[in-house]
Design a binder for these strands. Sequence first.
DNA 1: TTGAAAGCGCTACCAC
DNA 2: GTGGTAGCGCTTTCAA
Lengths: 329, 329
Amino acid sequence: MAKSAVTIVDIARELGISKTTVSDALIGSGRVSEATRQKTLLVAQRMGYVSNRAARLLRRSQTGALGLYIPGHVRNLSFYMEFAFGAADESALHDLDLTLIGRGVGSKRRSGPPQVDGLIAVDPLDGDPVLESLLGSDLPVVTVGRILDETQSHPLAVIEIDHYSMATALLEALRAAGGRRPVLLASDEKFSSSYTVDVSRAYADWCSGSGIEPVVIPLSVTPTDQELTATVQRIAAQNDVDALVSVAQGLAGRAAPVLQSMGRRLGKDFHLGSLVGDPATELRNPLIHAVDLRPREFGHEAVNFMREIISGQASETGRRNHRATLTAG
Amino acid sequence: MAKSAVTIVDIARELGISKTTVSDALIGSGRVSEATRQKTLLVAQRMGYVSNRAARLLRRSQTGALGLYIPGHVRNLSFYMEFAFGAADESALHDLDLTLIGRGVGSKRRSGPPQVDGLIAVDPLDGDPVLESLLGSDLPVVTVGRILDETQSHPLAVIEIDHYSMATALLEALRAAGGRRPVLLASDEKFSSSYTVDVSRAYADWCSGSGIEPVVIPLSVTPTDQELTATVQRIAAQNDVDALVSVAQGLAGRAAPVLQSMGRRLGKDFHLGSLVGDPATELRNPLIHAVDLRPREFGHEAVNFMREIISGQASETGRRNHRATLTAG
DNA sequence: TTGAAAGCGCTACCAC
DNA sequence: GTGGTAGCGCTTTCAA
C-alpha cells in the first residue's frame, strides 16, 4: 500500500524551487529552462519519484483505463484471448489499465458504467444486453467488427479486418491448390456478427462468380466432437465436394483427422481452409490454408485507435482496417 | 468524455445538506440518520451518481480494482479465459474493476506497479519477470496454484485445486473402466507449475501403489497436430498401453481421432483421461474421462478470497481450495 | 445527527 | 523562465 511517499513537493523542497516548476519539468511542457529540467529529472530519479496516478487523473478528469468487452459465447476461442492480451500489453505500454468487462455490468448492483475513458467491444452482437448498457453511457466506443443493427444511434468507431477479401483470397488459394468445390462450414444463427455476414457474402459471391453451387452447412461455433464428426462426414460423403472452409476457429483443424480417417488425403484430393486460423492446430499445419487474424496486433491497434480518439486525433465515428494474412497452405 | 458530472456536491445541493453527510450516507458509515441516508441514496441513484474513482483513490489510497495476471505461454487454453471472465464477473458484482496485466508491466515506460488493490496471479511460474516485478510491489497477492520457488519471500495467499486427489481419482476411474496401463502425456519443462508437479506426483504414486511401471511422455502444451499425432501413435504402438492421461487441456480430445484411426475403440480397449477438461471437446465427450476444473467458479473464488484479504478477514498468507469435479466418463 | 474545513498530489491559470 | 494559488472530488478530522 505504501505508495512511494516522495511527491513533487519533496523534490521542490530538495531543489529549493516551486512545485509548479517541478511539475512542468517532469511533464516536459517546455516552460522551464533545460538546466533546471535536467536537474529536476535527476533528483526525481534519485529520490525514486513516481507520479501519483490518482492525483494526476483527478486533475485531468480521466480514469487512465480502457474497458474491454468480449461477448460470452465465444470466449473459449483463443482469438479473443490473444486479442485481449494484445490490448492489455499495448495499454500498459501507454500507462493505461485495461479493464475486463464481464456480464456483471448490466446487473443491478453495479453502481454505473465502468470507470474507463473508452470502451472496446469485440464482435458486438445485436441485442446483447451488456453491450446495450455499455452503449448507453456516453463514452467513446470502438467496436471490433461492425454492429449490424442499423438503428444503432450511438456514435461508434469501427476497426475491422477486410474479411470479404480474406475469404475470397482463401477460396482462391484453395482453388489454386486444387479445391474446386468448397463447402462453407458456417456458424449457426446464434453467432451472427459482421464477420460471419462478410465471409458468407464473400463465399456466395465467389461461388456465383465461379459458376459453383454454394453449399453452406451451419454448425455451432464450439461443437462437440460428435457433432463435428457427423457434420464433416456428411459433407465429405458428397462425392463432388473436395474442400471445406470453416468460419469458426479451429474447426478445420479438428475436421482434418475425420477426413483422413475417411481416406481423404489432405492437400491432394481434399483441401481445408480456416477463416480464423487457430495458432496451434491450423496456422502451423501446412496442410491447412488458414487466415491469420494476428489477434495480438489487432488488440494493439484497437487500443491505439481508442487512444487517438480520446486524444482527439481520430474521429469518434472513424473506420479503420487491420491487416490479416494468409498462411502458405 | 463527459464523465457523469454529478458529484456529491451536486447531491448535497439538491438535498440541501452538506457534502459530508452525503458522503457518509453513501458510504454507509452509520453516522447519518436512516431517513437522510435513504433519501440520499435515492437522489444519488436518480441523478446517476457514480463515485469518482480517482478522487477516492487519492483520498484513501485504494483503487477499487484487482489485477489479474496470466502468464503468456498458455493463454490460448480456454481455462484461463474462463477463469478471467469468472473473475471479471465476480469483481463487477462487488463493484470492483478487474485489470488485465500484460507483459508490458515489467517494462520501462510504465510508471510503476498497476493501480490495483490486489493481484491475482494464475499458474505462477518461477523466473517469470513480469511476476517478479509484480511481487516487488507490496500489494497483497493471491496465486492460483503455488509458486514452486522456495526462496520466495513475498507473503502470498494461495488458492488451488487438490490436483493430486483429482489425478488419483481420474486414474482410478480409468482403471474401473478397464484402463490398467495408463501413460501420462505430460507437459514439457517450459511449463512447470505446481499443477504439473502435483499431477506428476499423483501419477508416480498411483503407479507405484499399483505396481505399474510409470511412463511419462513430455509434450508441448500446445503441440501442432503433427507433433501430437506422432507422439500419440508412438505411445499407442506399445501393445501393453491401454490408456492415456493428458496433463494439458484439450490434448486427450485431439488424441481421440488419432487413436481411432489406429483402430483403438475408445471406452473399450483404450481409455482417455484429461486432467484439464476442455469444455467443447472433452467435458462433453462421454468417451473421455475428464476433470472439470470449473474455471469460472474458480475465478469467482479467487476474487472473493482477495476481497477477504483486502478487508482483513482473511490472512495474507492463507491457503484455500477450489473443488473440481470428474465427468462421468 | 450534522457541518465546516483541511488536504490527498497534481496541473492549469494566473501573475511576476 | 519561474512561482503562487486554486481546485479536481473525495474522506476525515474536529466542532457544533
